[in-house]
């Protein structure tokens, strides 16, 4: 595999290790709902057609396996990939798990800095940081920062971007 990492150094920081649990719980909730629906559909099958055909069973087993693999594998891979760094002049994030996305924006072009916290995130004392530029294609997102650290980063970013001139387009 030829990653962008061979040509561009990793951003320095990882997000909080608690993010792994956060992602896993979130994925597990989704998986439980989906598997519940699938099992219900499987149980209801004989009412719609004759018995349970072999492909129904295969499909159920496959989908459940995929969901389990997702809950087990995704969070730790995502944690390993997700990195970020803010310098005096630029912000750099990397995210994804199967596909990867690297984003870099100059701080002089930053328009807004938001931190968001959903209900599940609050349980884990995590925050999401969203940095937008004037392009709809360009928000940089750091998911799963420790909430105190997020507050510090927001303050730093606001201090740096507040000092730059122009309307950032």
């Amino acid at each position: 595999m030829t990653d962008v990492t061979t040509t561009l150094r990793d951003p320095a920081h990882q997000v909080s290790p608690r993010a792994v649990t956060y992602w896993r719980v979130g994925a597990a909730i989704g998986a439980v709902v989906l598997v519940g629906l699938l099992v219900a559909a499987y149980v209801a099958m004989p009412w719609v057609m004759d018995g349970r055909p072999w492909w129904g069973t295969t499909l159920l087993v496959l989908l459940v396996a995929v969901e389990v693999a997702y809950v087990v594998a995704m969070p730790s891979i995502r944690f390993r990939v997700h990195r970020w760094e803010v310098t005096e002049t630029a912000i750099h994030t990397r995210s994804g798990w199967i596909s990867r996305e690297t984003r870099i924006a100059p701080l002089s072009r930053v328009q807004t800095v938001d931190s968001q916290q959903g209900a599940l995130m609050r349980v884990f004392r995590l925050s999401t940081l969203v940095v937008t530029t004037a392009s709809a294609a360009g928000p940089l997102t750091i998911v799963g920062l420790d909430q105190d650290e997020a507050r510090r980063v927001v303050a730093d970013l606001v201090a740096i971007t507040g000092a730059s001139q122009g309307d950032a387009t």
Partner: peptide
């Protein structure tokens, strides 16, 4: 006019 870069790599 470039205000940032995104490098996307699918599997």
């Amino acid at each position: 006019g470039i205000i940032g870069w995104v490098v996307v790599q699918s599997f």
